[in-house]
């Protein structure tokens, strides 16, 4: 449904904005979700412009997603002008050094809950190995054991995957399901079938 949403003040450099949505005023900040959108008053906007570096703006959008895209583009431009680059994979990996024990625990949990059941084994293994390079993890026996457990799960997954692939090749998948075999790459079909079989349901249940 079409609706008009307006940006009325903007701080492009930090990706912050005051918006008017359905005649209500909101303060918007990354990640621009429910928690990042808080109701505010006209006085707040005045104060933000006077004291905190926001500039008055008047941009209208039909959809919330367009507005977010606009703020993100403005931020990208302002940050790039200030010399902020998109990080390389190496720079992202280096950021792991700053992870606290709690963050490491959360990462291991997400590898276990999301990546392995989703068949994202290369990413699971690669991230676990990088986490295992951290002193904080190596010095903590519980975390070290958990990481090793994840690596064993990855190995186990690969073994089962190989067994499945062999089984399906023996069945001569292409001959049995002619249409599917013609339309999709055989490896993808085998992998998807194996995932569905493993979790016992067609679609995943997302956990938060």
């Amino acid at each position: 449904m079409k609706q008009e949403i307006k940006i009325i003040a903007l701080d492009a450099r930090d990706g912050l904005a005051f918006i008017e949505d359905s005649k209500q005023l909101f303060f918007l900040r990354p990640p621009y979700d429910v928690a990042g959108k808080t109701p505010c008053h006209a006085d707040d906007i005045e104060e933000a412009v006077i004291k905190y570096g926001f500039r008055r703006a008047d941009y209208s959008f039909n959809h919330y997603s367009e507005l977010i895209r606009f703020i993100k583009n403005e931020y990208n431009q302002a940050a790039a002008d200030d010399g902020v680059k998109v990080p390389t994979t190496e720079e992202l990996t280096a950021l792991l050094d700053s992870a606290s024990e709690n963050v490491i625990i959360r990462f291991l949990q997400r590898i276990d809950d999301e990546l392995i059941p989703g068949g994202n084994i290369d990413a699971a293994e690669s991230l676990t190995r990088d986490l295992m390079k951290l002193e904080k993890l190596r010095e903590n026996k519980v975390l070290l054991d958990r990481s090793l457990d994840i690596l064993f799960k990855c190995m186990d997954y690969r073994k089962k995957k190989n067994a499945w692939e062999k089984k399906f090749r023996v069945l001569d998948f292409r001959k049995k399901y002619i249409y599917v075999g013609k339309k999709y790459p055989i490896d993808r079909v085998i992998e998807k079938t194996r995932i569905i079989q493993q979790r016992g349901i067609l679609f995943p249940i997302l956990s938060h």
Partner: peptide, 21 residues
């Protein structure tokens, strides 16, 4: 950071710049 390292389509350019900062 987790998403950028593992599920890269969940992060966009602005996320990555925020992360770099």
């Amino acid at each position: 950071l987790f998403n950028a390292r593992t599920i890269s389509n969940r992060v966009d350019e602005s996320d990555l710049r925020h992360l770099n900062e």
